[in-house]
Design a protein around this nucleic acid. Structure first.
Lengths: 135, 135
DNA sequence: GTAATTGCAAAAGATTTGCCCCATT
DNA sequence: AATGGGGCAAATCTTTTGCAATTAC
């Protein structure tokens, strides 16, 4: 297999993802990265995100309610909560009993590599504000 | 609120979605619909998919592994299995005990409207075929 | 008759890719 | 020096939208 190089761009992108729990989009990562490497290009960001995903260092989350792909650099197992009002995408702990679910041998499944749990609803912030605000 | 009309296009699209468990993409629905209404347009398909979603008659599934949005017209609660080899997206039953999970009051969540469970792995078909095939 | 809906084509986004140059090893 | 990776811009793909014509009610 071919050798990979440690470029500044790649390092910065990975750092950004590992230091936030905001699940940024590629565009947001691009903007953050430009504060460090002003002439980094969006194409490079995408190429590295794909690369890091292939390496298993990062994973992508596709918001259930449309919008662009977001990325997650925190690999502890956790679920995601999507707020339909403000669009927030939050890490949440796996519900009690989740690990014990009978997951194997279901239907036509022969091997499970990962399980994604997405909870869609309203976050406390939005609910506290009554029915008006959109963020 | 404004009145809605029962157009042939809308009916055909809904039928297609309710009669399959294949979770077609908009493009696939468009192709199927053209066999019935040869000059239906892709724009109409998208407009109706969004409309049907707003009505709660259909929901969209965003494949975790990229690719375009797929649609589901079967509303019984079920989970989805994504095969990383052949790309199949299958309905599966919710695992035992799933309904009893402690889901409320977690972290900053104040209201839950739906829960999506996606299982990623390999389907039996692909595994039986050994390690070669891509479908 | 009226307004919701369609078809078509253009526009808008998001992501990928080709090409040539630069920088890591 | 060799070649993986970057920058830039064009290309691709998916989805949305404006508008005039059509059709359900």
């Amino acid at each position: 297999m071919k050798k990979t190089r440690n470029t500044r761009q790649r390092g910065v992108i990975l750092d950004i993802l590992q230091e936030t729990r905001e699940h940024p989009t590629a565009e947001k990562i691009y903007q953050d990265a430009r504060r460090v490497i002003p002439n980094i290009s969006l194409g490079t960001v995408y190429r590295n995100l794909n690369f890091l995903q292939d390496q298993g260092l990062v994973r992508e989350i596709r918001p259930c309610d449309g919008g662009s792909t977001r990325f997650d650099g925190v690999l502890d197992s956790h679920a995601h909560f999507h707020c339909t009002r403000c669009g927030a995408l939050l890490d949440i702990s796996l519900p009690q009993g989740f690990e014990q679910l009978q997951l194997n041998k279901m239907d036509g499944i022969s091997m499970i590599s990962s399980i994604d749990l997405h909870i869609i609803g309203e976050c406390s912030n939005c609910s506290e504000e009554g029915s008006g605000s959109t963020h």
